[in-house]
Amino acid sequence: MCGAELSSLPEGVQRVARALQDKGHPHSPVMLDDAARTAQQAADALGIELGQIAKSIIFRRKSDDAAVLVITSGDRRVDEKKVDALVGKTGRADAEFVKSRTGYTIGGVSPVAHAQPPVTLIDRELFRFEEIWAAAGHPHGVFRLRPQDLERLTGAPVADVVQAPAT
């Protein structure tokens, strides 16, 4: 992606694109015609399985007010007790907290290029897929990657952080 293309993108997407370029990631962000504020909307727009969407969920750690980012498969729900066991007691993060800590609005939180580095955990369920897609800093922006790329891009551990799927 060249400088001219980059400058036409929203600021959050520009930040993600630069971070991906800096780390040698082969895929640049793409902008979808419609907003993908939910994992289902993103999966529908991309024509992929819901589980291939890497959702970025932000929690607020109570002991130090740190942002905790859980990157989970779109078809799974975070188990807050499992997250708490790994990082300490957390609570819900409101929109203002998410924006101030990540630099992104809810619905566009990328797993990379945060305003303040979060405590990050990667859901092991993402490794069911060869290819996944994540938000790129804007509700219309996404980028393609492999689950292994998330480890490389974030330096975060892979953990069991989700509820068992309903049967």
Rank of each mutant, 00 (worst) to 15 (best):
G3R: 14
A4K: 13
E5A: 14
S8C: 09
L9A: 04
V13C: 06
R15Q: 12
V16M: 05
R18V: 15
A19G: 02
Q21Y: 06
K23L: 11
K23V: 03
G24H: 06
H25I: 00
H25E: 03
V30P: 02
M31Y: 08
L32Y: 07
D33L: 10
D33A: 08
A36Y: 04
R37H: 06
Q40S: 14
A42T: 11
A43Y: 09
A43M: 10
G47Q: 07
I48T: 14
L50K: 12
Q52N: 06
Q52M: 11
K55N: 11
K55V: 02
S56F: 07
K62L: 14
S63I: 14
D64Y: 08
D65R: 12
D65K: 14
A66V: 10
A67K: 06
V68D: 02
L69Y: 08
I71V: 15
D75C: 09
D79Y: 00
K81L: 11
K81P: 06
V83W: 15
D84F: 10
D84Q: 13
V87Y: 02
R92C: 11
R92P: 10
R92N: 13
A95N: 11
A95G: 09
E96T: 15
E96V: 12
E96R: 12
V98K: 00
K99W: 04
K99T: 12
K99Y: 08
S100F: 05
S100Y: 05
T102I: 10
T102P: 07
Y104H: 14
T105C: 00
T105F: 00
I106K: 01
G108M: 05
V112A: 01
A115K: 13
T120E: 05
T120K: 07
T120F: 01
D123V: 05
F127W: 06
F129I: 04
E131F: 01
I132H: 00
W133P: 01
A134C: 10
A134G: 07
A136T: 02
H138V: 01
R144P: 01
R144K: 14
D149W: 00
L150N: 02
L150F: 03
L150R: 04
E151I: 15
A156D: 13
A156Y: 11
P157E: 14
V158S: 04
A159M: 08
V161K: 07
V162W: 02
